[in-house]
Design a protein around this nucleic acid. Sequence first.
DNA 1: ATCATAGGCGAACAGACGTTCTATGTCAAG
DNA 2: CTTGACATAGAACGTCTGTTCGCCTATGAT
Lengths: 215, 215
Amino acid sequence: MTKGNGQLTEPQQKILSFITRYVDQNNVPPTIREIQAGTGISSTSMVSYHLKALERANVLNRYERRSRGLVINEPNRVHLLDIATVPIVGVIGASAPAPTPDADALASAENTMPIARSLVGSVEGLYALEVKGNSMIDALINDGDIVIMRRDQEVHNGDLAAVFLIDRNESTLKRIYREGKRLKLKPENPTMKPFYVDARIAQIHGRVVCVIRRT
Amino acid sequence: MTKGNGQLTEPQQKILSFITRYVDQNNVPPTIREIQAGTGISSTSMVSYHLKALERANVLNRYERRSRGLVINEPNRVHLLDIATVPIVGVIGASAPAPTPDADALASAENTMPIARSLVGSVEGLYALEVKGNSMIDALINDGDIVIMRRDQEVHNGDLAAVFLIDRNESTLKRIYREGKRLKLKPENPTMKPFYVDARIAQIHGRVVCVIRRT
DNA sequence: ATCATAGGCGAACAGACGTTCTATGTCAAG
DNA sequence: CTTGACATAGAACGTCTGTTCGCCTATGAT
């Protein structure tokens, strides 16, 4: 039951926020028993009781006797969550330069990687590479990982970047620090020491925005 | 079943458009029987049959045995339907057992991690932990990474799992292999050797589904 | 102390719901 | 013609799920 002042009681708020979260996670409203378990309320009848109160308070609508028949009545409920599909344009491995795709390549990519927009910010210039081989272990990146890259963007000192070393004909992922004519490449693994290369033999291909590993 | 050319059969299209319409109108996916009635299909088993086909065709996702457990997989409609928000229930680090949340903890988590549903499959039992410290470098997991875990699920040999070693009072992420009374723990880094512990002093807390690193 | 009231709890019920099994039909390949 | 893969119906089963009802406890007035 709502308090006189229009506030919700504590179990009601608990139920409400549980429903909200559940819908976010499952795209389907919860059952009464799921609400019970999720909120720690001891009986289904109590949940039912509180739901009736919430309905009276015009906070949600119910369809009688229908499973999961709950609809939250939140006019200003915003879903900030949005998903971006990032094209997987190629492979990055030890013995080949990582591709830096042009617009054509981006459009024609067959595989895509879905990722929450809030994780990566703007989709501008985003592309993904699949990691092949164990050569990037020292960047804590494994065979099969997906790295989300951003091209056309200034890569700052300290950023994790894809670097192609011309003399070795090898792509690598390292944190980069420009130091005059040379480039400091720092492995992610703190037990490994950084090393230096001539800046002219290193092509910086893009910044690593995010790494995703499925196990 | 999809036709060879990737087109959907006529009943499949009917079902799909019915679901779309129903969700638009009711904010909740329909039940199988409602689909049956709404499309004029004569049997629930036929609906189930076609739904399986649609799932195979990657047009929609289903949650087994859950009422109204349908999510349409429409590329144009992806925004909020295909993203799950996984609660971040705590921290995993060297010197503390990783939390294994009960329903209460899941419901009360404040921070969440958005992740594409297609990356993790079912949301069932999913939770996230933030990695603190460098102790899991050998699992190629860095300070600040987010690991997506699944609880209440059998952890199979070869799975990457969160293991708490009682005698060392330490949580770790390793691939596990049960070998009689002992447990083989294998670091992700192929240059490191596996080691063995008494199975009785190791608590397996969940399976790592996915690792996410923002750089 | 007695009684009324409200809140809370758990069991039980009836219907909803997803799944599965069997039987039948269709149609193309061998 | 036979076989096997696919499609369709109908029914049965077991679980899920919303609802209800009886019982208990606490509180406060009589």
